[in-house]
Design a protein around this nucleic acid. Structure first.
Length: 131
RNA sequence: GCUACAAGCCAGGCUAUCGACUUGAGAGAUCAGGUAGGAAAGUCCGGACAGCACAGAGCAAUGCACCGGUGAAGAGCCGGCCUCCGAUUUAUCGGAGAGAGAUAGUGCCACAGAAAAUAACUGCCCUGGAGUAGCUAAGCUCUUCAGGGUGAGGGUGAAAAUGUGAGGUAAAAGCUCACAGCUUUUGAUGGUAACAUCAUGGGCGGGUAAACCUUGCAUGCUGAAAUGCCACGUAUAGGUUCGCUUGAGAACGGCUCGUUCGAGAACCAGGGUAGGCAGCUUGAGCCCAGAGGGUAACUUCUGGGACAGAUAAAUGAUAGCCCACGACAGAAUCCGGCUUACCGGCUUGUAGCUUUU
RNA sequence: UGGCUCGUAGCUCAACUGGACAGAUGUACCCGGCUUUUAACCGGGAGGUUGUGAGUUCGAAUCUCACCGGGCCAA
């Protein structure tokens, strides 16, 4: 039996190059308080999160927001991951937290779930990649 | 016991489930261990470490500025001296001090005031001349002019030529004297020294050097985006200017001289890469206990203990229970300080009040 | 991580080398006038502990130090 609720190095956006390309060429939509950028790739589902230092002056607060979002994604992303893998594709997703107030976990959990549902719909509409 | 102040310390805990980074073991599945701070912050000082430079001279620039100690070093810390402020028990206690030089020079000191710094003006005094002046006259007084002596008086200001008294004089003045104050030479005593006390001689033409500056001392420049190695990729193309022994540029760091190297250099536009490893965490280190040295900062010896190492960047999330109901806040090469932020609690010391014995 | 620079009325800017009520006609605000009303125009007024706190000085927006808050640069 494999672990489900993981968020290892393979599942995070870790290449500066990939992130630059995502912002340059990727598509985006908005689910307040998030701004979401995404791009279909050949690899697998990858995820990143950032918080502006302009909105949160203290590093502690920025870390707090990032940890909450990572946790929400980790616990809810399984369905999308299976769907993406089923289509034999990859997907890079990058979230930017744009609000100026510190959120609590239940709010983040709800918003991330909305984002995930949007992606599920998107993925189901795209054809299967013939490798 | 309460209150106030000062110093030091701690910075929620436990359990369950699901994760992240990392170290070790294992063929692997996996298992075991470790994982933010007192300020990790501000980047204000000082270093370590690394690269380049380590012929030289001059100028400049920056920083520091009582003395001794401490320490790798410092604008840190400890102790002392001096000055100022506050308190009272008048000799102590507490606090503050960028604490060399104002007789090397230059500048500035609004308003007010005669004047803000060679002393000028007003005034005071003396001598001489003049007068349709006054008094009977010599002469004196008055007015005015010229020459000379003075720096006492001028009440304004933050600040006025050290203050008070006496002598002295035509009028005066540290001009002289006494006392007091400041500064300084020499000597003695005490102290490692700053300095203190005493004696002695000289001086006393404000303030401002966080105005320029002078004196003394110190300082090569650049910072982990340093630096070394491996891998991958492109454009040995284009434009402008300068230069090839008549020397561009570099070493050389801000400039000049000087020395050496020397054929490309600067800018514009454009193209490529932005992966990995080392540096990278164990070090002038930290904590605890004991025995010494020192007033103290600090230090010596012995024994024991624990050490984050990420790289779009880990150190967390949820639930429950307990209590004092959880503040400020997140490592990015590493140390030593300083400064700033901080809910609450504990310990020690000092002072005051109260109660009991 | 390292460095540079700036904070003055609500806004945009002045105030020289320290000197006294910290200015502007700007723009915004308030009151009055003009107009049927509004705008424009005319007249008048208010608005600042010079980012904060210390220090030097007789005296600080100005000089020095420490904080706070902006902006910019370096691959």
């Amino acid at each position: 039996m494999t672990k489900q609720f993981t968020l290892g190095k393979d599942e995070r956006l870790k290449s500066r190059k990939a992130i630059d390309q995502l912002f340059k060429e990727g598509q985006r939509f908005s689910v307040p308080p998030f701004r979401v950028s995404y791009q279909f790739t050949a690899a697998e589902l990858k995820f990143g999160i950032t918080v502006s230092a302009k909105n949160f002056k203290k590093a502690t607060d920025r870390n707090r927001v990032k940890r909450l979002v990572r946790e929400a994604w980790r616990l809810q992303k399984n369905e999308l991951q299976q769907s993406v893998n089923g289509k034999n594709k990859g997907l890079d997703v990058f979230l930017i937290y744009t609000a100026k107030e510190l959120p609590d976990y239940s709010l983040i959990e709800g918003k991330v779930s909305i984002v995930l549902k949007k992606f599920l719909k998107l993925v189901n509409e795209t054809p299967v990649a013939n490798s």
